[in-house]
Design a protein around this nucleic acid. Structure first.
Lengths: 350, 350
DNA sequence: TCTCGCTACTGAAGCGCTAAAGTAGCCGGG
DNA sequence: CCCGGCTACTTTAGCGCTTCAGTAGCGAGA
């Protein structure tokens, strides 16, 4: 019944509400926006009429009169969705959305191929008034984006900062503390030779992690610590693992920057007939279902990507509200020790 | 130089262009939109002025005058982003974006908790004129969404149909053919007892796959074929694998509906001291980096999620253009045979 | 020469909303 | 009894664009 009715019977406008209540459009507008200038009685009648007519403000009309667009933008440069970071990204987005939708903001998504194109998109968005602000992800060293958005006057927030230039506020994850917790764990489980198979050092967070890795090694007095950069690919994980393990003396623990590297690494380790964790321990910087399910299960760093996204969104909304937002640091990710570093779990389970 | 200038020096409007060229706003509008009514010479001067002033149409203003919003919406009900389908989703979205952004469309994303809320979002979007159309994903049996959007008069397209009610056009993946190719492969490699560890049958595509599984088993004369529904979780993968393998006679091949189930399953298989593929072969319905990197590597069905997304977007744009769009079937996914069904790869590689 | 019909424009209205300025009605104070 | 000042509105203008109904100018046909 009544299907397919296309339902274009002209959506109700302020005019309709005003007519029905018998006031002017302006009065209706005041009432609906909680502005002073209408009596409480009238306000109620307007509200009533609005809901009877199933009215909602026309988004474009509102945006046109200077209110924002109630939209924030996120551009993903395709390199950022390289194998392995997709999961994190997806969770980041859903986390942001949780906050945004509660405040009736929408998330505009764009995928591009390069940072330059990303900046072009910001220009477009700004010129077309499509978004109120944007979130910057995957900052690189000497990244042009913070300055670009600042220059554009486009409100922004960096997910995974801080911005070295200090131009754009950020929400960041304490990579140093996370790395320290991994290193402490490895130290406690008796490792003195550790290799870190990282992502590309051009990425700011990778760079920070490598630095933290070396610092932690010094702090903890672990003499033999080396890092090997990869491009996050399975092939690179395999190669880098092999070459790390051929080092003399051989490292006794490997830290992988993501799931794909780790799984590839585990393959390489097996091929060399080494046992996990007896010969080499393995830690992964990102907990995924696969980590728990592999045998042995992999010790992994659990980040709350959704919570991170939520914080990012909240901070961005503060920026949009004109507040001065300080750099914010997330709670430190927790290391989940599993069989790949601590050996077989206590028997039982079955 | 010139940082932080906030840059709100009032963006140029049609008026500015018109003044500079010395024509009316209307003429400028015609010129910029390629409408007849201006001479070629004038058109060029307007275009020139527009680019000099760095003008772009104000999105809201355009939308207000009846042009669409150049935005399509995608709602993800949280259940749909259950462990394991995230990757597919993310790729679907980026695939859509590739097409959309080329046509200057934006993708509006919303994450909700239930199908009901999802429908609420469609109502909101429609009332606020926020999107021109939407993409429906993860259809269930007796899904209320196709009717809901049809009734709303909200243009839509189903990713992963077809719509049983035939109300909303769809782009779908030929699950039957895909399942047939898996079954053929297993038949050829000598399997006569096969278990299919599926997702929840409430999902339309899962339902279709189970049916195809049974049909293929009949067609190929494979007598012993059973399916076990799971909730896609690692735990369920483990449990279902164990119970399948305890069947008598024991299945010699297992088909998993996603990566997480498969990895959990491989763990369970190992725990029972069975060898892959000698004792049980394994196939996964979704090729991921982890499949290639596990040992043995898992035979998997490779779907082109990004290509799928692109097709979805293209069809949706056709719908928006008012065209009558027929249900469309994607090219059949290809099965990538790996060691988990065909044994060790030919020596060499290293 | 006058009109017809065409091209190339202009002017004004209007999309749905907000906001600034204006006005009716009422009360209390002088 | 009039005025200032308040409340509760209404009127008007305008956001930036599209579009429709003109209109000026011009060459062609009768």
């Amino acid at each position: 019944m009544g299907l397919h009715m296309g339902n274009d019977a002209r959506r109700p406008t302020l005019r309709d509400i005003a007519d029905r209540v018998g006031v002017s459009e302006a009065a209706a507008s005041f009432a609906l926006n909680g502005k002073p200038g209408v009596s409480e009685a009238t306000r109620q009648r307007v509200l009533q009429a609005a809901s009877e007519l199933n009215w909602a403000p026309h988004h474009a009309a509102r945006a046109l009169t200077g209110a924002g667009t109630a939209t924030v933008g996120l551009v993903i440069a395709r390199s950022a969705q390289d194998v392995g970071s997709e999961l994190f990204f997806h969770r980041l987005m859903t986390g942001m959305q949780a906050v945004l939708s509660r405040r009736r903001y929408a998330l505009l998504l764009q995928v591009v191929d390069s940072v330059d194109e990303e900046i072009d998109v910001y220009h477009m968005w700004k010129r077309e008034h499509r978004v109120d602000g944007v979130v910057l992800v995957d900052l690189r060293r000497d990244d042009p984006r913070p300055e670009a958005v600042a220059e554009l006057g486009l409100p922004a927030l960096i997910a995974g900062g801080p911005d070295p230039a200090g131009v754009v506020p950020s929400v960041s994850i304490d990579d140093a503390a996370a790395m320290a917790s991994i290193m402490r764990h490895l130290k406690e489980t008796g490792h003195e030779r550790i290799a870190y198979l990282s992502g590309p050092i051009a990425l700011l967070h990778v760079h920070r992690r490598v630095e933290s890795f070396l610092r932690a090694s010094a702090d903890l007095g672990i003499a033999d610590c080396r890092s090997h950069a990869t491009d996050f690919s399975a092939g690179a994980g395999d190669t880098a693992t092999t070459s790390a393990l051929l080092g003399d003396p051989r490292p006794t623990a490997l830290i992988y920057d993501n799931e794909v590297l780790a799984v590839a690494g585990v393959g390489a380790i097996r091929r060399m007939s080494l046992r996990i964790p007896e010969d080499v321990a393995v830690v992964v910087w990102e907990d995924t279902p696969v980590c728990t399910v592999l045998q042995p299960a992999l010790t992994a760093l659990r980040r709350d990507a959704a919570g991170f996204g939520a914080d990012v969104a909240e901070r961005l909304l503060e920026v949009l509200a004109g507040e001065k937002v300080a750099d914010f640091e997330e709670r430190v990710p927790t290391l989940v020790p599993r069989a790949s570093t601590v050996g077989e779990p206590p028997v039982g389970a079955g």
